[in-house]
Design a binder for these strands. Structure first.
Lengths: 125, 125
DNA sequence: GTAACCGGTTACCCAAGAGAAACTACTATG
DNA sequence: CATAGTAGTTTCTCTTGGGTAACCGGTTAC
């Protein structure tokens, strides 16, 4: 992590830049639901996903929050919203190519969550 | 991501487990400051970090929030708090071995934040 | 003695987050 | 004609997050 400069001093000037980059990420991806939604859509790229389906399958999310978060994700070009000209009208949500770039983030969170749960369970034994 | 079962159907039973794992992660690591603090301490493992230093160097954090978040991180064994028997008394905060396991998460967030910023800048041109 | 450092805590307050439930509008099914 | 499904929006409310500022006790340097 820490790098040594030519003169032997420690280089940490980029630390604040790192923290700023992380702040940027958290501003766009932070909150209770956005990463959950992105992960869900990433897992279902081959399925047609509409509003009610997400509401049913993402545990605990309300219609209001889902609606709000979907709008914000669409604004940031992470997901797409497509109205199908069927009757009744249906809407398809999908992850965009750009949205797929978030996959490493959700992946590390899933992995950490799994190992964290293991740790908690072991600490109880 | 999606796997195919022996019978040809798509296997997605583990999706909800993934989302549950992510929910676990977000419960422990979510919020405005926790990942920022962990990243900061990860970057400074070779330095002695005390309260005021963090307050000065983590942009925008207040003493109240820093105090609160540090307690929660300590409870979850992600950081350690050590009082030095100096005069005046000083306190050293450091990341634990377990806290280091969060590094992949902060790393992907930093990387995504950097590329996101590039994308925004390019979209303005 | 007084200003400034450390390591916080406490009180106050506002805004945002977030849930519940009702409601709109349309369509298809029984 | 009633029920249920799609796709949300609106209203109402409560809680939480989070910022400001004052404050505590102690120590050291001027």
């Amino acid at each position: 992590m820490a790098k040594i400069n030519d003169n032997g001093t420690l280089r940490e000037a980029n630390c604040s830049e790192e923290l700023m980059a992380m702040r940027d990420s958290l501003d766009v991806l932070g909150g209770k639901w956005k990463l959950m939604i992105l992960r869900f859509l990433t897992n279902r790229t081959h399925q047609i996903i509409n509003f009610k389906k997400m509401q049913r399958e993402i545990d605990g999310i309300s219609a209001k929050m889902l609606s709000k978060e979907l709008k914000e994700l669409e604004t940031n070009l992470l997901i797409s919203r497509t109205e199908q000209q069927t009757r009744p009208i249906t809407v398809v949500y999908a992850i965009t190519e750009y949205g797929k770039s978030v996959l490493p983030v959700t992946e590390t969170l899933v992995q950490w969550g799994l190992s964290h749960r293991e740790k908690i369970i072991e600490s109880i034994k």
